[in-house]
Simulated assay, not measured.
Amino acid sequence: MATPASPDLKRYRGAVIGAGGIARQSHLPALRGALGARVDVIALVDSATDVSPVDAIPLLSRPEQLHELAPLDFIDICTPTASHLELTLWGLEQGYHVVCEKPVALTRAEAGMIAAAARTNGRIVMPCHQYRHNPVWMKVKEWLASGAIGRWHLAEFSVHRSAADSGRVAEGTPWRGTSAAGRGGVLLDHGTHLVYQLLDVAGMPASVSAWTGRLRHARYEVEDTASLRFEYPGRLVTMFFTWAARARENRIRFVGDAGAIEWTGGELRLERAGAV
Rank of each mutant, 00 (worst) to 15 (best):
2 A>R: 15
2 A>H: 13
3 T>M: 15
4 P>R: 07
5 A>F: 01
8 D>M: 13
9 L>V: 07
9 L>I: 06
10 K>T: 12
10 K>D: 15
14 G>L: 11
15 A>I: 00
16 V>N: 02
18 G>Q: 03
18 G>P: 03
21 G>Y: 00
21 G>K: 01
24 R>A: 08
24 R>Y: 03
27 H>F: 04
31 L>N: 03
33 G>K: 11
34 A>G: 14
35 L>I: 11
35 L>Q: 04
36 G>H: 11
39 V>T: 14
43 A>S: 07
45 V>Y: 03
45 V>R: 02
47 S>H: 11
47 S>T: 08
51 V>R: 05
53 P>W: 03
54 V>I: 08
56 A>I: 02
58 P>I: 01
61 S>P: 03
65 Q>L: 06
67 H>I: 13
69 L>R: 14
73 D>Q: 13
73 D>P: 02
75 I>Q: 02
75 I>H: 03
75 I>A: 06
75 I>E: 10
78 C>W: 04
83 S>P: 00
87 L>M: 00
88 T>M: 04
91 G>P: 00
93 E>L: 06
95 G>H: 13
98 V>P: 00
99 V>R: 02
101 E>N: 11
103 P>A: 07
107 T>Q: 01
108 R>F: 08
109 A>S: 13
109 A>E: 14
112 G>M: 08
112 G>L: 12
114 I>V: 13
115 A>F: 10
116 A>C: 05
122 G>V: 07
122 G>K: 05
127 P>A: 00
128 C>Q: 11
138 M>V: 15
141 K>L: 10
143 W>E: 06
144 L>P: 05
145 A>I: 08
146 S>C: 07
148 A>P: 07
150 G>P: 10
151 R>C: 09
151 R>I: 05
153 H>K: 04
154 L>S: 10
158 S>L: 09
159 V>N: 12
160 H>S: 11
160 H>N: 09
161 R>S: 13
163 A>K: 14
164 A>N: 09
167 G>K: 00
167 G>D: 06
168 R>L: 06
169 V>C: 11
170 A>V: 14
172 G>N: 02
172 G>P: 01
173 T>W: 01
173 T>F: 10
176 R>W: 04
181 A>E: 15
183 R>W: 06
184 G>I: 02
185 G>A: 04
186 V>W: 01
190 H>D: 12
192 T>L: 05
192 T>E: 15
194 L>W: 13
196 Y>S: 12
198 L>S: 00
201 V>R: 00
203 G>L: 05
203 G>K: 07
207 S>P: 05
209 S>T: 15
211 W>Q: 14
212 T>W: 02
213 G>Q: 06
217 H>S: 04
218 A>M: 04
218 A>N: 08
219 R>I: 03
219 R>Q: 15
220 Y>H: 08
221 E>L: 01
221 E>W: 02
221 E>K: 10
221 E>V: 02
223 E>F: 00
225 T>D: 05
226 A>W: 04
227 S>Q: 09
227 S>A: 15
233 P>F: 05
233 P>M: 06
234 G>K: 05
235 R>Y: 01
240 F>T: 07
245 A>N: 09
246 R>K: 10
249 E>H: 15
252 I>K: 02
255 V>K: 09
255 V>E: 09
255 V>D: 09
256 G>W: 06
256 G>D: 10
261 I>Q: 13
266 G>T: 13
266 G>N: 12
267 E>S: 07
268 L>N: 01
269 R>Q: 14
270 L>N: 12
272 R>F: 10
273 A>K: 12
273 A>Q: 11
274 G>W: 09
